[in-house]
């Protein structure tokens, strides 16, 4: 139960921690107070509780593949919001921000974290809820959960400070890289789930790296959580992964290329005679 809890909790926490720390870095770049994170985590936890609570009936939708469809839907929603986020708020961190723009930023980040926590947290709720039902499982499950959560959160904190430690110019591009990997991961996982639900057709396996880096190793698990590593990806998965990354990159062009018009006006103020 112990190892199991570690692996399960770690995987779910790590995905969320990566997203939250990257978004917190952008919050810092815009000098916005990071209170949204508390609201996002709280609403994500509530969302996860309800999602877990109704998982039984959700699973029976669409001829017993409701779970896959719902999860894929949430992942595509995350990808969609990530695309909007990168188009509007990713590159232009130093241009003057209106309060309206900051509001949009907060709404985006809040939605992203809440949605991602809803999906990942529900699995934690289901697992821990079941494991705690057996008294002999309580201690190993709790210990395992603490260790898994500890590792996940620590990685998040280190990513946060690691990103902030970069030269300011490179923070945005590194953040974009991480967010695009998350985007690719979302697209690929959604594709996989829809294939599992038979909503997408089977496609052949492109390669097999399981002998190099097995998916069930700790590193494999970490890489799965962070960049969506898959030892035996199918053609559609690879395609959707690439599409997800490309989508985020293309959308980010809008925010990276856009010249802040207010800044130009400010520099050309008339000097008194």
């Amino acid at each position: 139960m112990f190892l199991n809890s570690v692996v399960l909790i770690l995987q779910e926490i790590l995905e969320a921690a990566l997203l939250i720390s990257v978004l917190l870095v952008f919050t810092r770049l815009r000098s916005i107070r990071p209170f949204w994170a508390i609201a996002a985590i709280a609403s994500g936890a509530i969302g996860a509780y309800f999602f877990a609570h109704h998982m039984a009936s959700i699973s029976e939708w669409f001829d017993y593949v409701g779970q896959e469809v719902m999860n894929a839907f949430i992942q595509l929603a995350i990808l969609f919001i990530l695309a909007i986020f990168s188009a509007k708020y990713l590159g232009n961190t130093h241009s003057p921000h209106s309060s309206q723009m900051n509001r949009g930023f907060i709404v985006c980040t809040l939605l992203l974290v809440a949605l991602s926590l809803t999906r990942e947290g529900s699995e934690v709720f289901i697992y821990v809820g079941g494991a705690l039902g057996d008294p002999s499982h309580v201690q190993p499950t709790l210990m395992g959960s603490v260790i898994g959560a500890g590792i996940g959160i620590s990685v998040g904190v280190l990513i946060y400070y690691g990103l902030l430690g970069l030269p300011t110019k490179r923070i945005s591009t590194s953040g974009l890289l991480l967010l695009s990997l998350i985007g690719g991961n979302m697209a690929s996982q959604a594709t996989l789930l829809l294939t599992q639900a038979d909503w997408l057709p089977y496609s052949r396996i492109l390669w097999d790296t399981s002998s190099w880096l097995p998916e069930n190793s700790i590193l494999g698990r970490l890489l799965y959580a962070i960049i969506g590593y898959e030892a035996t990806p199918s053609l559609f998965q690879v395609f959707s992964y690439a599409t997800g990354i490309l989508l985020i990159f293309l959308c980010a062009q809008f925010s990276f290329r856009k010249q802040p018009p207010m800044l130009i006006k400010q520099t050309s103020t008339t000097t008194p005679q």
């Binding site: 112990f2 190892l3 570690v6 260790i147 500890g150 590792i151 959160i153 620590s154 990685v155 904190v157 280190l158 400070y161 700790i218």
Partner: peptide, 22 residues
């Protein structure tokens, strides 16, 4: 910064060591 990053590093390696030990 010091407290958070040191504690994170310590937790990370301690827990991974515990895991490996387990």
């Amino acid at each position: 910064f010091l407290i958070a990053s040191i504690l994170a590093t310590l937790t990370l390696f301690n827990f991974i060591a515990a895991l490996q030990g387990y």
